[in-house]
Design a protein around this nucleic acid. Structure first.
Length: 662
RNA sequence: GCCCGAGUAGCUCAGUCGGCAGAGCAGCUGUCUUGUAAACAGCCGGUCGCAGGUUCGAUUCCUGUCUCGGGCUCCA
């Protein structure tokens, strides 16, 4: 028998008999790989392990160690989910079930409007485990679209996928019709499906793992409603989310990460640490700040003001309402009205709560004649805005309906703009770093295809200036085509928190439109009038969201400079109360936030309460301390207390920590 | 806004197959006077989210509504 030769990823060649499959190759390389193999990449295309190999092909065996392997594994697990659900709910039909980050989902339409609740997931999971234990093979078949329609005669969503994707000429929109659906079939007017038992087939482009026995490290997570093809006008489906991994350890690690995230949930910590609350009387997305939350907010805002002072910004204030004429001029009523609170009619005029601060700053600019010598003008305002967010989108402090932006508008000449933008990016990163964020991701958002104003040339110019600034700041970024605001392109900067999640905070937007709409001018050195450029910028984004992110980043254990209470002073017994009061007075004199908890309750209990509040320091004072002007120091995160620390030493150390934000 | 789910004491939750609800923690009072993560006792506390309906009777069943959670969409 003749042989074929294939090339492995390391460049080596391997000789196999004609008719060998990728699975044979894996087995030839070694038994461990054969066992771990899930799919193969042949000349860059991912295929089932059953794929026949040909002479000269580049072949890589893919395992769950790679993203591609996990994708195949998750996609295959989604199929098993569909098999289980169709089996358990007679009359149910299935839509799509793609792999996603960390797992997969599958959408179902159940007969008679039945729903699946979280309680049903355990039963479905058991059925899935039976299917996995049966080690059913995933067999690939290809048929014509017409045959496919017959095969899935009872499943309208599958038929629609075939009609939408397989029966549309490839040239039509160049793969645009629906990328989500394209995953489900083979293309080229033919469709592929997988059979893993007599009773179950599913439309799928593949590849899949060889058999259900390769799966198993999964968990069904939640149910949700979702529209067929994301269209609110289409039927609503039951979606089941799951997570799937290559090993028990990976699954456990993932579940652990979720538990960690849950522990950090700012909504829970905000309540436990008495920072903010959301009284239902206020309505969705509206919070009140309690004294301890307000302490942190003041520090955040004061620090922001301090940095803006240093950065050459001028502070301004503006009211929360303005007549409709302003929003007409700014364009908000044309482009943003659905996100605005409705108008209040008053004295024959319509007053809208402000969704943005920009128009006010435009008017401040316009209040006097400006010279090129005045530019750039950098205005700063902690401006509270109101946006009518969709009720389902509101989420704690992260997405509110009333929030305060650390907003600035820089008015510059076109020549100044690039340097201003570059300096601004550096300024933004510097401030974010001061709060303990060290990892960033940026997006450069370009002109939206609809709902935007202005000349292409201006958009291009502005987009280039933003790109240059990102490059200069050595910030990695990705392109968000069409993601810009209606008036100009923008950079969004996300921070990564302590457990690797990213949050959008900063946004930096170039605007040629508002100067036009408001007729802003400056007199140039040539004595003629010119239009300035505006750079909008929110650095923390909103104080509310920023605080929410800080809470989750630090898990409520704020560094000393931010902590609402920096130290509690606990007298061992009532007789040490006077000394505790002296310690408190001394530390307060130094500007520290300190609280005495007197000896009404046992020391252990008071220690516990203070630790649960995540205070940076708990100071215990007893006889020895009274005698020697010392304190017992319990630093957060340490087990053993430090005894007999001179009070002056402690104060110096705390001062150092506050100064360095450590 | 739409889909799914949930609302019981300040918090975490139990319970009532329809007969006006219970625990722990927290809070208050008293006793205890404490050297490193929960002293002891007592007390207070809920028109069971809200409004209708069904019923002799509704926290429980039904309808509507509000709020919250998950998702879709969107975003600072």
């Amino acid at each position: 028998m003749a042989d074929i030769s294939v090339i492995l990823p390391d460049g080596s060649e391997r000789t196999l008999p004609v008719g060998a499959t990728a699975a044979d190759l894996a087995a030839d390389i070694g038994p461990r790989l054969a066992k771990a193999a899930l799919v193969a990449a042949v000349d860059g295309t991912e295929l089932d392990l059953s794929a026949l190999l040909a002479d000269g092909q580049q072949v890589a065996i893919i395992t769950a160690d790679s993203d591609a392997g996990l994708v195949a594994l998750r996609h295959s697990t989604a199929h098993v989910l569909a098999q289980a659900v169709l089996d358990m709910y007679p009359g149910a039909t299935y839509a799509i079930g793609p792999p996603i980050d960390d797992g997969f989902y599958y959408d179902f339409d159940l007969p008679n409007g039945a729903t699946i609740s979280d309680d049903d997931l355990a039963a479905i999971e058991s059925r899935m485990r039976e299917i996995i234990a049966a080690d059913q093979p995933f067999e690939r078949h290809e048929v014509s679209a017409a045959e496919g329609l017959a095969l899935f005669a009872d499943h309208p969503y599958k038929r629609e996928i075939i009609e939408t994707v397989a029966m549309v000429p490839e040239s039509d929109g160049a793969g645009q019709p629906d990328g989500e659906l394209a995953e489900e079939v083979a293309g080229d007017g033919r469709i592929s499906y997988y059979r893993n038992s007599d009773s179950f087939i599913d439309l799928c482009r593949g590849p899949h793992v060889p058999s259900t026995g390769r799966l198993g490290h999964f968990k069904l997570m939640s149910t949700a409603g979702a529209y067929w093809r994301r269209d609110a006008g289409r039927p609503s489906l039951q979606r089941i989310y799951g997570t799937a991994w290559g090993s028990r350890q990976d699954l456990a690690a993932h579940l652990h990460r979720l538990a960690e995230a849950e522990k950090r949930d700012h909504r829970r910590l905000a309540r436990e640490l008495d920072l903010v609350s959301w009284p239902t009387e206020l309505g969705p997305g509206l919070a009140v700040w309690h004294p301890k939350g307000a302490v942190v907010r003041r520090i955040i805002e004061d620090y922001s003001r301090h940095r803006h002072d240093e950065g050459g910004y001028e502070f301004v204030f503006s009211p929360h309402l303005a007549r409709s004429e302003l929003w007409q001029t700014s364009g908000h009523l044309d482009f943003y009205e659905e996100s605005m609170y409705p108008a209040m009619e008053l004295d024959g005029a319509s007053y809208y709560p402000k969704p943005m601060n920009c128009p006010f700053h435009m008017l401040i600019y316009k209040s006097s004649q400006r010279s090129y010598r005045d530019l750039p003008i950098r205005m700063f305002e902690l401006g509270t805005v109101y946006r009518y967010e969709l009720s389902g989108a509101v989420h704690g402090l992260m997405r509110s309906r009333g929030f305060t932006q650390d907003d600035s508008h820089i008015f510059a000449t076109r020549e100044q703009a690039p340097a201003e933008i570059a300096a601004l990016v550096a300024f933004v990163l510097s401030v974010l770093r001061a709060f303990g964020f060290n990892s960033f991701e940026a997006r450069l958002a370009t002109r939206p295809p609809e709902k935007s104003v202005g000349e292409d040339a201006e958009w291009d110019l502005a987009t280039e200036a933003l790109r240059d600034a990102l490059v200069a700041a050595e910030l990695d970024f990705e392109l968000d085509g069409g993601g810009g605001a209606f008036y100009g392109p923008k950079i969004d900067i996300d921070v990564r928190d302590a457990i690797g999640r990213s949050w959008q905070l900063s946004t930096l937007q170039v605007d040629f439109q508002l100067p036009e709409r408001f007729g802003l001018e400056y007199v140039g050195s040539d004595g003629k009038r010119h239009r300035p450029v505006i750079i909008h910028r929110a650095l923390m984004g909103s104080i509310e969201r920023f605080f929410g992110v800080l809470i989750e980043h630090y898990e409520g254990a704020f560094p000393a400079w931010l902590a609402p209470v920096q130290a509690a002073v606990l007298p061992v017994a009532a007789t040490h109360g006077d000394y505790a009061a002296q310690v408190e007075a001394r530390l307060k004199q130094d500007g520290f936030r300190v609280q005495v908890v007197d000896a009404q309750e046992p020391l252990g209990r008071r220690i516990r309460a203070a630790k649960l509040q995540k205070l940076p320091y708990v100071l215990v004072v007893g006889d020895d301390d009274v005698a020697h002007a010392t304190v017992g120091v319990n630093a957060r995160g340490t087990d053993a207390p430090q005894r007999d620390v001179p009070l002056t030493d402690f104060a110096a150390q705390l001062a150092q920590e506050v100064a360095t934000h450590s």
